[in-house]
Design a protein around this nucleic acid. Structure first.
Lengths: 206, 206
DNA sequence: GAGATATTTAATAGTGGTATTAATTATGCA
DNA sequence: TGCATAATTAATACCACTATTAAATATCTC
């Protein structure tokens, strides 16, 4: 009926749903609204995806992959340790900046739907241990060299994750409280990107 | 009908509502369920609070105060700067640990209900600036002394907030992914309390 | 173009929620 | 005790949402 550009109705529904789920979460987004915004009949949402849950799954699956791999992807070899860490922080930061509302949706649905938690565990259970072991190995070398204080991969990774995540999850609230304008806030974000690197690299020192 | 202990029905409703809102958020908690768990008739919830929104407001108001003042309360005078920061971090950490689900509810409802955002701004707009100015003054002294690298109160406070917040907001997910047991996870939390202090104090150094 | 299949629609059953009302029971107080 | 007020209940109006169905329309294939 209303083929925006040349995409199919199914794609339109999927994209609209993703947008709305990110904006308002699962519970507050109705299939009726998805259909309205996508410009199609409400029954079509169910025709293509059967249930609201399945529609969400289709989106959540993809989002979870982005979210997880942003954090857990393997690090570059052959560059100095400090550079490696810097790159990890910045890459993770940039992916979150490109998807600022994703973490909230992610945690929200994992908190309210325990079923998804165990699903996530299966998906990531195998991924994080090898990575953390590898980092622990590298840390061990640096610690013995005396260039890094004693610490674990868990310490390091949690700090990176925390700084980056919290910034984007609290973004809108932060902007409201401080009363910063859009551009001022963008500047803050940019500053924080540098600051996160600084904080973490300094915190590594013995 | 069912006066648990000797509290009033109104209190029972309030406490039940708080518990359920924290567990499942506003949207997924029904007044019907609140009444059921509180052991009273559903109409009573509306008799005492008129609407679900007002009931939530009553709880949110109190929670917001805890949440904000945990972060913004004035720091001890007459102790060395480093100790002051350590205490700030630990106090904030401990309040969050005592209310681990509160940040999520807080951000969630602020994200989905823009009306509350401006309300929050009124409440905090006056609080954060004086505190940040005071910290900036102290930082200036330390920076001139050469004991702290150049940085702003915003830098420092955001780092404290981020580390503490993210830990508790991602807690359940983190535990699921890592597969840690309850006691193991408690140990992790305890370690992170020390680590947050370490990271931040080290990150202050020039 | 005919027939088969895919897409789209309107209509609606069914569910679960919020809020109100009017009636009933309990409580405080003169 | 009796009256006023507070607390509580059952019943229900009303609404929004999910999901299904059966019919209508478009699209594809031969």
């Amino acid at each position: 009926m209303k083929p925006e550009k040349d995409q199919t109705t199914e794609q339109a529904i999927l994209e609209t749903a993703e947008k709305l789920f990110l904006e308002k979460g699962f519970a507050l987004t109705s299939t009726t609204e998805i259909a309205r915004v996508a410009g199609c009949n409400q029954a079509l949402v169910h025709y293509y995806f059967r249930t609201k849950d399945r529609l969400f799954d289709a989106i959540f699956e993809k989002s979870a992959t982005v979210f997880i791999s942003a954090f857990l992807d393997k690090m570059d070899d052959n560059i100095p340790f400090e550079e490696k860490i810097r790159k990890k922080i910045e890459t993770h930061f940039d992916i979150l900046r490109a998807n600022p509302k994703l973490p909230f949706l992610f945690f929200n649905e994992l908190n309210t739907n325990p079923g998804r938690l165990s699903l996530l565990k299966d998906k990531t259970g195998g991924m994080y241990k090898p990575l953390f072991s590898a980092i622990d190995e590298e840390l061990k070398v640096e610690i013995e060299k005396g260039s890094v204080r004693p610490m674990t991969a868990m310490d390091l990774m949690l700090t990176i994750l925390s700084l980056n995540l919290a910034l984007f999850m609290s973004g809108p609230v932060l902007q409201a409280i401080t009363g910063l304008t859009g551009t001022e806030f963008q500047k803050l974000i940019e500053n924080r990107r540098r600051e996160h690197v600084t904080v973490i690299l300094k915190s590594l020192r013995p």
